[in-house]
């Protein structure tokens, strides 16, 4: 198997941290000059049967302001167990973490503490479950209006459907 990371400067050096030390690791990296939080996402390893089910990936970049050069990148992998999927928020380090954490919460159900109340970013508030988890079926619908199943009725005429409109 090839080792792609070495030949891939966008990916950067791989590091790992335990959930309790993740915030300190990020703060230390920021003090060392990694000034941009490029990306933050999570992977659900349920289908592969790995023990800590989730892995949150932070991707940092050291950007030189005057020359626009990328002076190096690093990616921090944090393994988060299913039982207590909570991390300390890095909102105080980078304000963009607000939306990225909300997305991770929305899609994977990984919570964050030490930040204002977290709410969904992409899905609506009434949505139940976290769609990017491997155990969420892709076509399980929770419509706000229209037929409850979200499917087309047999006779797709408007008179038989009669949607109940719910407003806030």
């Amino acid at each position: 198997m090839s080792e792609p990371a070495a030949a891939n400067p966008c990916q950067g050096e791989r590091r790992e941290a335990v959930p309790s030390a993740a915030f300190d690791a990020l703060r230390e990296l920021k003090e060392r000059g990694y000034n941009v939080l490029i990306d933050m996402t999570a992977v659900d390893y349920l289908a592969q049967g790995r023990e800590p089910r989730f892995e949150v990936v932070y991707r940092l970049m050291k950007l030189d302001l005057s020359s626009g050069e990328d002076r190096g990148r690093v990616e921090l992998h944090v393994k988060v167990p299913e039982g207590a999927p909570v991390l300390r928020s890095c909102l105080s380090l980078w304000p963009i973490a607000d939306w990225l954490e909300r997305e991770v919460w929305d899609m994977f159900g990984i919570g964050f503490v030490d930040r204002p109340k977290i709410k969904r970013l992409l899905m609506y508030e009434e949505f139940k479950g976290h769609p990017l988890r491997k155990d969420y079926p892709i076509a399980k619908r929770q419509p706000l209006i229209g037929p409850a199943s979200g499917e087309r009725p047999d006779n797709p005429s408007f008179n038989t459907v009669r949607p109940a409109v719910k407003y806030e």
Binding site: Y136, I138, R152, P156
Partner: peptide, 15 residues
């Protein structure tokens, strides 16, 4: 887009 987020045809909500 046959998935959890997408309406399967707007004729299910408007004529």
């Amino acid at each position: 887009y046959n998935n959890y987020a997408t309406v399967q045809g707007i004729d299910t909500i408007v004529p």
